[in-house]
Design a protein around this nucleic acid. Structure first.
Length: 403
RNA sequence: GUGAGAUUAGCUCAGUUGGUUAGAGCACUGGUUUGUGGUGCCGGGGGUCGCGGGUUCGAAUCCCGUAUCUCACCCCA
C-alpha cells in the first residue's frame, strides 16, 4: 500500500468540516477588518526565503524542501507565507503606489521537520499582512483581529507580547547581550554558545533551566529601547487595555524569523501539548527594502490551522434538507426524479434501495435530515405524499406536483 | 537531527508464563408482519496482529531491523 509521506496528512470528513469552518470564520473577520484575499505560489525561488526569513534561522538552515527544477532554478516549497506576499507586493509595484495594502491568505506551508503533535511537514496557515502603516494602531489592529478570530471559534488563549526594537536600538542591545553571555560562556549550554554566532537574541528563550537562571540578570531589550520603540510599546499596551485584551509581557519572546522588529506577539494555548503557539506575528518594517522594494512599514501574523483544529468549538449541527426513501422497487424512479427537482433548492439524501420504514428513518436520522418523505405504491396511486418534519414531528399532506 | 514509548477489525481497545480456528464495544450491513418514529431483539461481513527477518515443535506474544504515530529535545504556526 502506498502511504502519504511522513508528516503529510489528508483532510477529510469531520476534520474537513472543522478546517473549512475555521477558514470561513477567519475570512469573515479579516474581511470585516477590510483585508483582501491574496494567493501566491507554493513554489518560490530559494533566494526569496534566504533573504527574508534569514539564513541564520532553522527554517532556512535545515527545514526547507529545496531542489533544482528542470530549468536549473534553485526553488523551494514555501516554509511560511509572508515572504511570498511581500514579493508579490513589490512585483506588482504596490510599494511605489503608496497607501495602505492589506491582505490575508491561507494555504499549505512546508517544513522538513520531525513531526509530532501540532507539527507537520505540510501544514496550513491563515495569515494576514498589512503594508504602508507605521502606526502602532495597526499593530494593535492585528492583535485584535487574531483575538476576534479565536473568540469567534471559541478558543481560549494567552497573549504574549514583547518589543524587539528597531535598527536604532536592537544592534546596540545585541552587542551588550553578547558581551553578557560571553562573560558566562562556561556556565551556559552548548546551544547557547552556538546561538552567540548564529542568532544571539535566541539565547533568551533557551529552555535550559540553568541558562534561564543566568539570563534573569541579563540586560532586557525592553529596558533598552530607543525612544520611538519605547513610546510605541507603551501606546500598544494602552490600546490593548482600552479594548480589553489581556496580555503578558514576555521579555524572552523572540520570533524565529529574522525579519521582525518592534512589536512581536504570540498567542499560545495550554491545551494542545508542547507545540503551543497557535498564532504569531509582529512588525517587519525593513523586509520590503531587504527584498529590493521601496522602504515600506509592514506588520502581520500567521495562525497554524492544525494546532487550532481540536480547540475549535463547532456550532451545534441543525437538521437540514430532505430524506426521500422508496418503500418498494417501483418507487425508486420517482424518488430519484423528486430528488433531482428538489436539489435545485435543498439538500436531498436518497437511497437507491427499497427498504421498510424503520430502515429509512434510521437513514434520515443518520444524515440529520429535517424532512422525511416516503414513496410507495400508495403515493404513486394517490398522487399525494406526506412530508414529515422530523424536528417538530408535524406532517403535511400535499400533491406530488407541489413538492 | 538526538532520546523514549507505541502500532491487533473502519474507530477505541482486550488478548494470561509463547500453545487449538485472534476477541469486545462502537460503526457498517441485513432481518425483525412491505406503510409511520429512531434507542429493543436476532443475524452477517470485515484481520497477512504496521512491514521484513530471526529464535522456537509452535510467535500477536521473545530478539533484530525498518516504517509510521506519540512524547521530550530542537524549532516554530
Amino acid at each position: 500500500m502506498i502511504k502519504s509521506l511522513r508528516g503529510m496528512n489528508d483532510i477529510l470528513s469531520e476534520d474537513y468540516e472543522r478546517f473549512t469552518y475555521f477558514i470561513n470564520t477567519a475570512t469573515d473577520v479579516a474581511q470585516k477588518y477590510g483585508f483582501h484575499f491574496i494567493e501566491t505560489p507554493l513554489l518560490e525561488e530559494t533566494a526569496l526565503f534566504k533573504r527574508s526569513v534569514g539564513e541564520s534561522s532553522d527554517i532556512v538552515g535545515k527545514e526547507m524542501y529545496q531542489f533544482i527544477d528542470k530549468g536549473e532554478n534553485d526553488v523551494c516549497l514555501r516554509p511560511e507565507g509572508t515572504a511570498g506576499v511581500v514579493r508579490a507586493f513589490i512585483q506588482k509595484k504596490l510599494d511605489k503606489a503608496g497607501g495602505l495594502h492589506r491582505y490575508f491568505y491561507h494555504g499549505s506551508m512546508f517544513r522538513y521537520e520531525r513531526p509530532q503533535k501540532g507539527r507537520l511537514r505540510q501544514f496550513h496557515q491563515f495569515g494576514v499582512e498589512s503594508f504602508g502603516s507605521e502606526s502602532v494602531y495597526e499593530d494593535a489592529n492585528m492583535i485584535m483581529m487574531v483575538a476576534d478570530i479565536l473568540d469567534a471559534c471559541g478558543i481560549g488563549y494567552r497573549l504574549q507580547l514583547n518589543s524587539l526594537g528597531d535598527s536604532m536600538c536592537m544592534p546596540t542591545y545585541r552587542d551588550n547581550l553578547v558581551k553578557f553571555v560571553e562573560r558566562r560562556k562556561d556556565d551556559v549550554c552548548e546551544d547557547c554558545v552556538r546561538r552567540l554566532d548564529t542568532n544571539p537574541i535566541r539565547v533568551l528563550d533557551c529552555k535550559n533551566g540553568k541558562c534561564q537562571e543566568i539570563y534573569v540578570n541579563a540586560p532586557k531589550l525592553i529596558d533598552n529601547l530607543c525612544e520611538s520603540c519605547d513610546t510605541d510599546f507603551t501606546v500598544l499596551k494602552k490600546i490593548l487595555d482600552t479594548n480589553e485584551i489581556k496580555y503578558e509581557i514576555d521579555t524572552n519572546l523572540v520570533r524565529g524569523l529574522d525579519y521582525y522588529s518592534k512589536t512581536a506577539f504570540e498567542f499560545v494555548s495550554d491545551d494542545i501539548g508542547s507545540q503551543s503557539a497557535i498564532a504569531g506575528g509582529g512588525r517587519y518594517d525593513r523586509l520590503v527594502e531587504f527584498l529590493d522594494g521601496k522602504p515600506t512599514p509592514a506588520v502581520g501574523f500567521a495562525m497554524g490551522i492544525e494546532r487550532l483544529m481540536e480547540l475549535i468549538k463547532m456550532p451545534e449541527q441543525t437538521k437540514e434538507g430532505y430524506y426521500i426513501g422508496a418503500l418498494d422497487e417501483n418507487a425508486v424512479d420517482l424518488v430519484v426524479q423528486l430528488a433531482h427537482k428538489k436539489r435545485r433548492t435543498d439538500k436531498v439524501t436518497i437511497d437507491y434501495k427499497a427498504k421498510n420504514f424503520k430502515n429509512h428513518i434510521k437513514g434520515a436520522d443518520k444524515v440529520n435530515a429535517k424532512y422525511f418523505v416516503l414513496i410507495g405504491s400508495n403515493e404513486i396511486q394517490s398522487g399525494a405524499i406526506v412530508i414529515k418534519n422530523l424536528e417538530d414531528k408535524t406532517e403535511d399532506n400535499i400533491p406530488i406536483e407541489e413538492f
